[in-house]
Design a protein around this nucleic acid. Structure first.
Lengths: 200, 200
DNA sequence: GTCTATAAATTGATAGAC
DNA sequence: GTCTATCAATTTATAGAC
């Protein structure tokens, strides 16, 4: 079955369960039995919907991508600057999860990036490039040139990702809040520089 | 055997091999057989030196920490500002590895951070906190106050980590070079602000 | 200390009944 | 389509000879 959208409840439920478990335990540590149990499906039945664990992972990434694109689009209502601010603040909407498990996209990319010649590696990088491209688009909408908008978009996503990694590793929610605030201030300054910048 | 330093060639060789494989393949994907073969030691012999895979991982982290502290100390010769510059530039000394496998510390922390109540999680976070603490020490040596030096040290390490994650995930060495250059510029500006900052 | 052989458990994947 | 039962391979860990 190769439909882009599958109405099968069990298939959908398997992908949802896998996405959750891959986030909380990592891809390699999660077994098909874990996924099956979490989805309320017998182990053997998993292979009716997904030939291999890898193809299940591909469906998980596709789900991540769909959700991500929806989320990014939903941030665009009030103009580019507001959009970027929402991106920076997004992790604050799930502080506890970020502290316990890190970034769902970033941690998955780390893990999949170490596979050799796997389609999963390629699929995974879309999760980060989608965010960078979107951030660049916002900066372009502010009238920025190609090169500078790309540079700042990359720096922005890197800062957010690095902040989540640190706060997760050190188990420090207050660091997440504080450092995302600093990223936000930095971004504001990039967009609207003041000649005499006062310390906040 | 609980010696801090063990002259046993085979034990040392096992830890070295494990460190390398954990970096290139990840912790969960690496089997004890992989480690044994890479170290030139029979599988069964691994358990003479390390009771469990976890205790082997603890030794790997201890090795990382020892090396990291040596490296950080080696950067301190020419004053705080030079020290921090060396930290930012450090990934440039291993571009290919960073692109293929990410940051040895960051990727390990991501993976170990998802274990539940494991001593490995606690051990892993020292890899990042050691870098933050060291960076803060350099800023303190520049006369900075406690709070601001902590904030900037965290932001610096987060930026470097995020940059490595992005460049690794997207397989983009030029991004690593370019963005680390931007981090360096940002850091210079933080340390020696110019009233009228010219675009570089 | 070092090694071979193998146990014990896990896990991705398959077969085949219903 | 759904499920049970199980295979085949892998992998952590142990036993015991040398």
């Amino acid at each position: 079955m190769t439909r882009a959208y599958d109405s099968s409840t069990k298939r959908t439920e398997l992908v949802r369960a896998a996405r959750d478990l891959f986030y909380r335990q990592g891809f390699h540590k999660t077994t098909l039995d874990n996924v099956a149990k979490s989805a309320g499906v017998p182990l053997g039945n998993v292979h009716y919907y997904f030939e291999t664990k890898q193809s299940l992972a591909e469906a998980v990434i596709a789900l991540h991508l769909t959700r991500l694109r929806e989320t990014l689009a939903s941030w665009e209502a009030d103009g580019p600057q507001q959009s970027l601010q929402r991106m920076v603040r997004a992790p604050l909407g799930a502080v506890e999860a970020v502290i316990r498990f890190g970034c769902p996209h970033g941690s998955l990319c780390q893990e999949l990036g170490k596979l050799e010649d796997s389609p999963l590696t390629e699929a995974g990088n879309q999760l980060l490039s989608a965010s960078i491209d979107w951030a660049q688009k916002q900066l372009r909408a502010l009238g920025w040139e190609e090169k500078k908008s790309r540079d700042v978009a990359e720096q922005l996503v890197a800062s957010i990702q690095g902040t989540m990694l640190l706060a997760h590793t050190l188990g420090a929610p207050e660091m997440l809040v504080n450092q995302l605030g600093r990223v936000e201030s930095w971004l504001e300054e990039e967009i609207q520089p003041r000649k005499e910048r006062s310390l906040r």
